[in-house]
């Protein structure tokens, strides 16, 4: 087996998931200015719901639809019930609120599904494909393709459609956007529903390859957040950064070992955060 090729395959697979999560995180961030630390829970919830329904003999497509719907409902509800009524709160407090929601979700998932990891059958279960001296599961190819296509569609959506412009206007200046006739509430709702759909999609495609458990959410949030932060919270760039993060991790693991991966990856993250923010001062609260 060619290790180099294998590292690329592995990196693209995890990168695809980071990309899906990062894009969702960024879309919600851009309407609220809040880094939603409960974002990864959409992944955990969708994964758990699909697994439980699959276990209960519900047909897989139906289970997947239900799981993705649950993830969308979760994030929409988070915005509607918790974040929106508190939009005048400082951003830091709202980030903590989302952390609280993440903790609560973890507790609920553990009660609902227990502590064991869960999984379900893959959509493409035929033998893995041999390519350029590496091996990759068909489901992983599906994941990579779906993630890339979703990213391109969303990039187009944000750049070219009326909604995309509204989304950006809402992010930059909610009051002004409202004056210009943008329905800020609706925009936020759509953004959170979209973010939930992406998180759910990631779960529907990845959980057959990697099991999910009640505490998977926070880890997923962190990875998506890292990709998003590297991209400076821009949706297009965060897709690329998601894939790059996956590839970088894979190469560090391949050539440096699993023990080196965390220190190296996160040192790079710190450097990137410093580089990204070198021009930004007095951000957020302190701006006139």
């Amino acid at each position: 087996m060619n290790l180099f090729t294998q590292a690329i395959f592995s990196g693209l697979t995890s990168g695809a998931v980071y990309a899906l999560l990062a894009v969702g995180l960024v879309i919600a961030y851009r309407t609220t200015r809040v880094v939603n630390l409960a974002h990864g829970e959409s992944y955990a919830i969708a994964g758990t719901v699909i697994s439980l329904l699959d276990h209960a003999q519900v047909p897989l497509p139906l289970a997947m639809a239900a799981g993705i719907a649950a993830a969308m409902l979760f994030l929409w509800g988070l915005d509607r019930v918790i974040l929106r009524p508190r939009s005048h709160w400082p951003v830091g407090s709202l980030i903590l609120v989302t952390l609280g929601v993440a903790f609560l979700s973890r507790g609920v998932l553990m009660l609902a599904a227990g502590v064991d990891p869960l999984s379900f059958a893959r959509i493409l279960s035929a033998r893995p494909v041999r390519l350029f001296g590496g091996i990759i599961a068909r489901q992983a190819i599906l994941l990579i393709v779906v993630s890339a296509v979703a990213a391109i569609i969303i990039g187009y959506f944000l750049a070219r459609t009326r909604f995309g412009r509204q989304l950006r206007a809402t992010a930059e200046h909610p009051e002004a956007a409202q004056l210009m006739g943008v329905n800020v509430h609706a925009t936020r709702a759509v953004a959170f529903l979209l973010a939930g759909a992406l998180g759910g999609l990631a779960a529907a495609l990845l959980v057959p390859l990697v099991p999910v458990d009640f505490q998977a959410g926070l880890g997923m949030t962190l990875r998506g957040f890292i990709a998003a932060a590297l991209a400076g919270m821009a949706p297009g760039a965060s897709v690329i950064c998601g894939f790059l993060l996956g590839l970088f991790e894979a190469f560090v693991t391949t050539y440096g070992g699993a023990l080196a991966s965390d220190p190296v990856v996160f040192l790079v993250l710190i450097a990137a955060a410093l580089w990204r923010s070198r021009a930004i001062r007095f951000e957020g609260r302190a701006r006139a």
């Binding site: 980030i95 932060a229 965390d262 996160f266 710190i270 955060a273 001062r281 007095f282 957020g284």
Partner: peptide
């Protein structure tokens, strides 16, 4: 000098390292 969100990322990263 990192603004709020990036300060959070930086300290998270420090803990991971």
């Amino acid at each position: 000098h990192l603004p709020g969100t990036y300060f959070a990322v930086g300290t998270l990263g420090f803990a991971f390292v």
